[in-house]
Each structure stands twice: as C-alpha cells, then as structure tokens.
Design a protein around this nucleic acid. Structure first.
Lengths: 189, 189
DNA sequence: CCTCCTGTTGTCAGTGACTGACATCGACGC
DNA sequence: GCGTCGATGTCAGTCACTGACAACAGGAGG
C-alpha cells in the first residue's frame, strides 16, 4: 500500500523494534506494528511465524558465521579450542552490531516471553556448533558437551559485554576463556 | 464439583500430562484439561499462569534441593567442584523420578513451545545456582560463569541419561565431569 | 497488446490462550 | 445464625495466530 515495497519485512522489523521500545513488547499488538508500516496484521504473520520472531531475524547470520569459522579453524585444535578460536574470529561482527544489539538485549532482558525465545535461539545455535564439530570428526556426545561448554563461556562474555562495554568484547572473551580453564582445572583433581 | 477437592492442582497436572500424551500438546486445549477434572477453564488458569506451566510444577523441588546441597557442600571446594558435588548428591532424587520425567522429556523434546519453557526453567535454575555460590563467597561474575559451565555438564548428563538409561545417571555424571575436565585442559595451553 | 502465471497482499471468519469483573457457595470462627 | 474468606463459576473481551479465498501487480510468452 505504501511507497517503497522494497522490503516490507525490513520495515516491519524496524517498526516492531521502535514500538517495543516505546510501549514495551506486551503492550504493542501485531496489528499496530503492521499498521505503522501500512500493511495488514495478516501480512505481518506471513513474514514472521509469530510476534516474537520479528526480533530474531538476524540469528541465521551469526550461525552461518560461526559454523563457517569452525570449518576453517586450524585442524590441530581440539573441540573446545576450536570453539574458542571461532568465537574470537567473529567478535568484530558483534562489536559492529552493538548499536543494534544493545538496546535489543535490554528489551529482551526485561521481557520474559522474548527471553524464552532468545534461549531457544541459543540452544539451536549450540546444536549447530555441535554439528559443525562433528563435521571435523568429533564424536556425537563429546561434540554436544563441548558445544554446551563453549556456549556457556561465549554467552557469559557477550552478556557481560552487552551490559557494560567497559572491557571490549575481545578482552571479555579472553578473560572468560582463561577463567573457564582455571575454574575447571581447580575442579579436576 | 467432583469428589475429592483434595487437590485440584494435582489432578489438573495429571490430566494435562495424560491428554498431552494422547493427542499432543498443541491439540489439547486448556478447556479440555479442565473438563476432565471437572472444573472450568478459568479455574485452570487460576492454578497455572499459562498452559505450559502445568508441566513444570516440580521445578521448585529441584531448585531447593540443589541450592541446599550447595550450601552444605564442604567448604574447601572451589565453585565448580561445589556444583559437581551438589549434582552428585541429588542424583538419587532424579533416578527415583525417572518414571515420570522420562515420558515428560520425550513430550517436551518434540514440542517446541514446551522446549522453550524448559530452557527458561533451566536458565532460572542456573541463576539460582549462581546465587547459591555467591552465598559461599564466590564473586558475582565468576559465580555466574561457574553456574553456566556446571549446568552445561549437568544438563548434558541428564539428557543423555533420559534418552538412554544404559549407564546410570551417577555414571553419566562422573563421566561427563571427567570429560569436561579433559576437554578444557586440552584447550587451556 | 492480450493472456496466463505467480507472488504478495487484503479480507473475513474462526479458534484458542489468557484476563478482569462480578456473583456464588461452602467451610470456618464467632 | 452470621460475617468472612478462599476457591470456583460465569461472562465478556482482547489478542495471537490460521485457513480460505479474492484481488491485484508485474513478468513471460504468444
């Protein structure tokens, strides 16, 4: 209906983020988001399977970047070292994205329904990491365990960085990796 | 309406589990669950804030057991060792619960909406573990990281055991802890 | 230029998860 | 017997989603 049909999807995403920021997620309806873009509620749900998903469109980017990094990691590295290497290699991507991801994180953190969805995306990403490790020859269960352990560290670092940019993400990652190693070493014997 | 008002809540939970098992989660309505127990849909939603929650009533038990165990763990243990000790100490509780938790897990695993809620519960549990560690004097961020890392191992072991009882949960836990230590040691230097 | 095809959108009706407001009813203390 | 309180029923309403069908645009082929 409006000019520039270029990408209704993109405009829906922007409108949703704006409205969620203004009134909060719960108090904005899908119809309102659609109206701001000049389309129908029905059209909204043709572009996104549900109202939450409008905020999680970029997830695929991170997944492909990470699985690609895992595939390209030096062959000598073990499973967890591979993951650490991959997290390091994509951190510029996240740093550049901060202007978008930081307010988004604040919104998600204060909205239970969105937080649940975020956890689901993280779980899916964890599975993707495990699959990527298997492609490198790591066995089934060890790959899953390594993926879980690696993601624990990665998420810890990213969240700490989103809530306080003080140490850069790169530093946060290094420190978290080191801390993980120390933590587990002390629990070993 | 029916005899034995003893605990509508318990009967709702049982009816829900039965119906979900028969028809699947998506194709059973809250009204049907309520009807089977002889109450109104409205009553269902007075006992459970939403339809998913009916399956996650026992979560508090696990949380209290684990936080109590953390408080009682030997003082000399470091953060992660404390968690491992606590997981070990409650594994009989889970073993006894298997007849209930195994079909429940199967249902959750094949129902995205329920899987999301399970992840949220696990995240809440992780936070509780972090808090319990802080009560032992562990600092803020290290406690959070240890909780995430420990939960990664714990969840890995429990899920593997739920999907195949072959090695007992106790054995799964020991093996997972050892595997985690090995995994991280190799990624350290 | 007409036509057919395909992809995107609008329209409409319907289901089901929840919520607030208010009435009811039985147990219980007094 | 009476007032109170907690659990429940009733009813109306909102909102997330879905299926079915019509409308309409632009592009391909004649």
């Amino acid at each position: 209906m409006d000019r520039s049909e270029d990408d209704v999807r993109v405009r829906l995403r922007q409108a949703a983020l704006a409205l969620f920021g203004e009134r909060g997620y719960e108090r904005t309806t899908a119809a309102e988001i659609a109206a701001r873009v000049g389309v129908t509620e029905r059209t909204f749900f043709r572009h996104f399977p549900d109202k939450r998903e409008v905020l999680f469109d970029g997830e695929a980017v991170l997944r492909t970047a990470l699985t690609a990094a895992i595939a390209e990691a030096p062959g000598a590295l073990g499973p967890l070292a591979t993951l650490f290497w991959s997290f390091r290699s994509i951190h510029p991507l996240l740093e550049n994205n901060r202007p978008y991801s930081e307010p988004r994180h604040a919104l998600i953190a204060r909205t239970p329904a969105l937080y649940e969805r975020e956890l689901a995306k993280t779980a899916a990403l964890t599975d993707a990491l495990a699959d990527a490790l298997q492609l490198r020859g790591v066995a089934d269960l060890p790959a899953a365990l390594a993926a879980r352990t690696g993601m624990a560290a990665f998420v810890h670092a990213v969240i700490a960085w989103l809530e306080d940019p003080e140490p850069s993400l790169g530093e946060r990652l290094e420190q978290t990796f080191a801390e993980t190693v120390a933590l587990v070493a002390e629990a070993g014997p």
